[in-house]
Structure formats: C-alpha cells, structure tokens
Nucleic acid binder design. Structure first.
Lengths: 140, 140
DNA sequence: TTGCGGGTTCAAGCTGACTCGAAGTCAAAT
DNA sequence: ATTTGACTTCGAGTCAGCTTGAACCCGCAA
C-alpha cells in the first residue's frame, strides 16, 4: 500500500536520494520495507521527511527536529518552547548585527577601521576588555 | 612601540592563542613583527581582531569580515549592504520558524505528526510538491 | 644546569549535513 | 542476452572555524 522507492520519494520532497539514505543511516527516517534490498517509503515516512524539511529550513538541527518528532507530549512541547526562545535570541543578534553594519555604513571615511575615530574608539574598548554583549546592550 | 606577544593579545580580546595563530595562517590578521620567532601584535592588529570578533559574533563569516576590513570604499559598502539584506532574510526566516513552532504548540494532540489533522494536511501538501516558501507566504 | 612557562610548527581531529565515487545488484525493456 | 537505469554499500571528501597533540625552542630564575 503506497510504497514508493527512494528516487520518487526524493523527487516528491525536492530532496536528494543521498539525503534520504543519510537520514536512514542516522536513524531519522527509516523506510518501513525493502524490496530486493531497495528502500520503499510510505506516507508516514514522507510526512516525517516533510516535517524535517520544514524544520531544517527554518534553522532547526536535524537532531532537534527528530527530537520533536519522536518525543511524547510534555517533552516535545518543552523542546519547541526552547527553540522559540532560541529563535528570539537569534533574531535579537541579527538585529544587533544590522545596527552595527548600519552604523559602519554611516561612516564617511574610506576605511573605517583605520580612519574613523568612532569606530576605532569602539574597537579599542573591546581590546580593553569590554565584551561584545556590553557594547550591544549600549546601543539598544 | 606597544608590541605584545600572542598570549597577552589573546587575553585582551578573550580569544584563544590558537585562534590568533589560525587567523595569521589564514592571512586575516598578521602580526607586524616577530621576536625570536614569536608573534608580536600592535594596536592596529588588535583592532582588526576586535572587528573580526564583533563581525563574527553577529554572524558574518571570517571571509566576509575580512573583505569589509580590506576592501576600499565603494566595495566594502556594497558588501555591508548585502550583509544587511542577508540579515533581513535571516530574520524573516526565524520569524517564520517561530510561527511554525507556535502553530505546532497550539495543537492539542500528543503527537502532532501522527495525530493532528491540520499538521498532517500541511505535511502532505509538502509531499505533493508545495514548497516551504509557498507555505511560509500563506501564513504571513 | 635544570626546570618552567610560554611560545613555535605541522598534522590531524572535530561538528553537521550532507555529497561523491567506485564497485556491485537487480528488474525490466530491447 | 544484454543493456539501461535506478538502486545498493562503503569509504572518503566538503565547508567553517577552530582545537588538540606531539615534538621542539627560548629566555629566565633558582
């Protein structure tokens, strides 16, 4: 019932067959049957692959995604909450990066790290022991 | 004038000496002098290291950071603008991920990929050929 | 003179998520 | 009967950004 070989499964999901073999080897998605040694995938496995694809696309590691797939209720919810918090940190960091870069763009000199007094002052503070976090906190 | 050995430089910046050796080997930050074969760092190099540290901390690759440091004016501005755009994409993706995860959290079942009809319907659409981007676009 | 701390080089290992190449297998079509 | 195409396994290679280990050197203090 509805078993398809690896090439078709890969095509449907827009993944490489080698990727599916790798997932199988890692124990993330194992085809429920083999025909003449060949992996045959069913609907359940295709859904698992789809989930992994989304999760990986949005930045989760395969292990995290698999943990969400396989854990029973209270646990996967906890993992998901942690991931959401992690993404909050990631977004904050990216926004900090944009501020830093925008700031650099606003510098009128040719070569900020050599010619821009403000940039040099900031860098020298880092050399003196200020952490990147402290700098970031200031600019918020 | 103001030359310090690798250990001190590493301490000031909160980096590992092996990291500084690695940066030297990669040609990212080369100490301007050697004393008895030992690397001696000056203020200019410390600033370069500080810049690399910030840039790397906010998610830029070492190569990108070095490109910004070394390129003349119109070029580094272009690189920086591209990085800002890249960060825009990253942030959008992370926010999409949060939506996806929050949506999963809202599911009342024990095991969404097996029991939640809505989740299964979404995954099956991916299996049918819908791209992750299309799904993401729908939910905005 | 010996020991010590802090350097040096070079080569290899690590993580994550694959990708690739070589050599072999299998079923169906010609 | 043979070829084709899709598959199999296994081992190794890729990328970034380091870290670790082995073996060695250098100047200083006891």
């Amino acid at each position: 019932m509805d078993l398809i070989p690896i090439g078709q499964a890969a095509d449907r999901l827009g993944l490489n067959p080698s990727t599916l073999r790798y997932y199988d080897e890692r124990g993330l998605v194992s085809p429920p049957a083999r025909q003449a040694g060949r992996r045959m995938y069913g609907p359940e496995q295709l859904r698992r692959l789809a989930f992994l694809k989304i999760a990986h696309h949005v930045g989760l590691s395969l292990d995290t995604a698999a943990a969400i797939l396989d854990a029973p209720d209270p646990q996967w919810r906890q993992t998901v909450r942690e991931q959401i918090a992690e993404l909050d940190r990631l977004i904050a960091q990216a926004q900090g990066a944009q501020k830093f870069l925008t700031h650099a763009l606003s510098c009128p000199t040719n070569h900020p790290t050599r010619d821009c007094a403000a940039m040099i002052a900031t860098l020298d503070r880092l050399v003196e022991g200020t952490t990147v976090e402290q700098l970031a906190a200031e600019h918020t």
